[in-house]
């Protein structure tokens, strides 16, 4: 996305615009031991009790949050 952004805005009204990407931490929820934990990959097992699968609670979203017009 960062790679494309400059080319896409070039010559448009958005030329010179800055792209800010926030990457929220990936969080998985274990339904067995009721804990929320940091995960690195989709198919991880619970770090506390070994339960599988974890429900991904955060980190999959791709949202345009806002435009700041200067």
């Amino acid at each position: 996305m960062r790679f494309c952004f400059e080319s896409v805005v070039a010559g448009s009204i958005a030329e010179g615009a800055r792209l800010e990407i926030e990457q929220p931490e990936a969080l998985g929820w274990c339904s067995a031991c009721q804990q929320l934990m940091h995960i690195e990959q989709r198919f991880e097992v619970c770090a506390h009790c070994g339960h599988f699968p974890l429900e991904i609670r955060q980190g999959e979203q791709m949202r345009i949050k806002y435009l700041e017009v200067l």
Binding site: Q61, M62, R63, I64, K65, Y66, L67, E68, V69, L70
Partner: peptide, 15 residues
Amino acid sequence: AQPAPRVIQLELDIL
């Protein structure tokens, strides 16, 4: 005076 930055809330999924 510079116009104050205008923030347009979108909260749109990219897809």
